[in-house]
Design a binder for these strands. Structure first.
Lengths: 111, 111
DNA sequence: AATATACATTCCTATATGGGAATATGTAAA
DNA sequence: TTTACATATTCCCATATAGGAATGTATATT
């Protein structure tokens, strides 16, 4: 079997750094494709293809305005990623605490 | 160009659902490969290969104990994902607020 | 030393890219 | 109705899987 499709879920879709760049850019406000092309410095077909992937997994929404297509983020679709990573938050906080404790113990030694 | 390697970063590594399953399992405690094989109901070579990807991006750490290799999560490596998703938190909270407001307005109508 | 156990690695293959180039589609302007 | 503009789609190809099968390697047991 090959790798799962980029359109299979949000996890696969955001694995591509350019798509995260696009989402970051759209986080500020709704934008046209050509705005994105200019900002990202990518070829227009590439941008359109990335936008298609993002749309397929529900990470962006589109509406037409004249000749332009205006894209915006659908933040709700990012929530599952946030929630999955949150389940590990307790672990890394604990890890950070231990690092801090060690640093303090080392400091105590010096005295 | 093809898709970026699964070992290029944590985003690509966790795109694969089986690897997230493994991380979820390891979140509870350090485990041997055969423990993982049993729990995940996957073939041992598959598990070993997924573990290699996770290790390459720093998502897990290993130590040997006799014949066994004990793997554990390195939660710190998940933080970048958490932080990236957090930048959209404001947006979905705003979205949820609007949904709530609409529901209340609709309720008001009924009266 | 021989054998068993626990993992890792290699080889194979179907599949899904992402980018570049070219082209198609849809809408507005002249 | 041409023409221009904005975006989407198609074709091509090098590349990287993920899983299955087979094999290699390290450590412990007998």
């Amino acid at each position: 079997m090959a790798r799962a499709a980029t359109t299979s879920d949000a996890f696969n879709a955001v694995a591509e750094p350019r798509r995260r760049d696009i989402l970051n850019y759209l986080a500020m406000q709704e934008r046209s494709v050509s705005d994105i092309v200019d900002a990202m410095e990518m070829e227009q077909p590439s941008v359109s293809k990335h936008l298609k992937v993002l749309k397929d997994v529900g990470l962006v929404e589109v509406r037409r305005e004249g000749r332009q297509m205006l894209y915006k983020v659908n933040a709700m679709a990012i929530r599952p990623l946030h929630e999955w990573t949150s389940t590990f938050e307790r672990l890394w906080k604990h890890q950070l605490l231990r690092i801090k404790e060690r640093a303090e113990a080392k400091n105590e030694e010096k005295k």
